[in-house]
C-alpha cells in the first residue's frame, strides 16, 4: 500500500514536470499579454505529430528531432503572432479568446487531415522500459521528459531573472502601463513571450507524445489540464504554474492507481472547478 502510493506519487511528479514545461509558457503569455492561449496545447500536439513523423519516416529519436521541430514551431508561432495576435492585441480579451479558439480548430483539423483520427504513438527502443530505484520503478520516457522539462523551466526562470529582456517581461507582467512608461517595447516583449510559450509547448508536447498515445482531438484534454494548472497556481505566476503541475500530476496518478482510470480524467476538471469556487485567484495569484 505504502509502496503503491509512493510509486503513484513519483510517477505523478514525473508527469507533472512535463505539464509544468507547458504550463509555465502558458502562464507567461497570459501574464504579459492578458491572453489565454487556448491553442497552446494544439501547438504542443502538433510538435508531437512532427516528432512522430520524424521517427516514423527517418527513424529520428524524438529528443534529436526537437532540434528541427522547435524552429518549425517557432516560425509558425512568429507567423501566428504577426498575422493574428498583433492586430487584435488592443481588443477586448474576449476577441483574442475567440480567435485562438478558431486557431485551435484550424490546427486540429489540419492534424486530422495530415495524420487521420487514429491513435498514434512513438515507439522508440526505450519506450516501454523502466529502471528500478529501490522499491519503485521509474519509466524511462517519463524520466527523460521530466529532466528535459526541468532544464527548460530552469533555463526559462534564469532568463526571466537575469537577462534584460527577461526583466522587461516580468515588468510587463507586473504593471503593463508602468513598464511602457519606463520605455519597454511592449510589442517586442509580447512577441518574445508568445514565442517562449510556443517553445515550451513544443518541448512539452513532444515528451507527452513520447509518454502517451495521441490523436488530434486530444489537445482539448491537454489544454483543460493546463488551464486547471494555471488557475490552481494563479494566472501569470510562474512558481504557481510549477506547483500546480506537480499537484495535478500527483492527483491524477494517485487517482488512476486506486480507482478506475476514467476518474483520473476528471481530476483536472474537478481541480479547475473547485479552485474557481474556493479561490479564483489561485494559490499564488494576486487578488483580482
Amino acid at each position: 500500500m505504502a509502496v503503491a502510493l509512493l510509486q503513484a506519487v513519483v510517477t505523478g511528479v514525473l508527469v507533472g514536470g512535463i505539464y509544468a514545461c507547458m504550463a509555465v509558457g502558458l502562464s507567461v503569455v497570459f501574464g504579459v499579454m492578458n491572453i489565454l492561449n487556448i491553442a497552446h496545447a494544439a501547438f504542443a500536439l502538433l510538435s508531437a505529430y512532427l516528432a512522430f513523423w520524424a521517427f516514423k519516416l527517418w527513424g529520428l529519436d524524438p529528443i534529436l528531432s526537437l532540434l528541427g521541430t522547435i524552429p518549425i514551431l517557432l516560425a509558425l508561432g512568429a507567423g501566428t503572432y504577426q498575422a493574428f495576435i498583433r492586430p487584435i492585441r488592443n481588443s477586448p480579451p474576449l476577441m483574442s479568446l475567440l480567435l485562438l479558439f478558431g486557431l485551435a480548430h484550424i490546427l486540429e483539423g489540419g492534424m486530422l487531415l495530415a495524420w487521420s483520427g487514429d491513435y498514434r504513438s512513438i515507439n522508440t527502443s526505450y519506450t516501454a522500459t523502466s529502471f528500478a530505484l529501490g522499491e519503485i520503478t521509474l519509466s524511462t520516457t517519463r524520466s527523460i521528459g521530466f529532466v528535459a522539462s526541468a532544464l527548460v523551466v530552469g533555463g526559462l526562470s534564469l532568463f526571466l531573472k537575469r537577462s534584460y529582456l527577461g526583466k522587461a517581461i516580468r515588468a510587463t507582467m507586473q504593471e503593463r502601463e508602468a513598464a511602457l512608461l519606463m520605455g519597454v517595447d511592449i510589442d517586442h516583449v509580447s512577441r518574445v513571450a508568445f514565442l517562449l510559450g510556443i517553445g515550451t509547448a513544443a518541448v512539452g508536447g513532444t515528451f507527452l507524445g513520447l509518454v502517451y498515445a495521441f490523436y488530434p482531438y486530444l489537445h482539448f484534454m491537454w489544454i483543460g489540464r493546463l488551464f486547471a494548472i494555471v488557475v490552481l497556481g494563479g494566472m501569470g505566476s510562474v512558481g504557481g504554474a510549477l506547483a500546480g503541475s506537480i499537484v495535478l500530476g500527483v492527483a491524477e496518478s494517485v487517482t488512476a492507481s486506486f480507482t478506475a482510470s476514467v476518474w483520473s480524467e476528471l481530476v483536472a476538471y474537478a481541480i479547475l472547478v473547485l479552485t474557481l469556487v474556493v479561490r479564483p485567484s489561485g494559490l499564488f495569484g494576486r487578488g483580482r
Binding site: F84, L99, G102
Partner: peptide, 22 residues
C-alpha cells in the same frame, strides 16, 4: 469536401470573422 476539412473551414471562418468582421 472531406469531413476532416470541416474543422479547418470552421476555424478559418471564426478567425476571419474576429479579424475582419467583429
Amino acid at each position: 469536401v472531406v469531413s476532416e476539412a470541416k474543422l479547418v473551414v470552421y476555424g478559418v471562418i471564426l478567425v476571419s470573422a474576429v479579424l475582419f468582421l467583429p
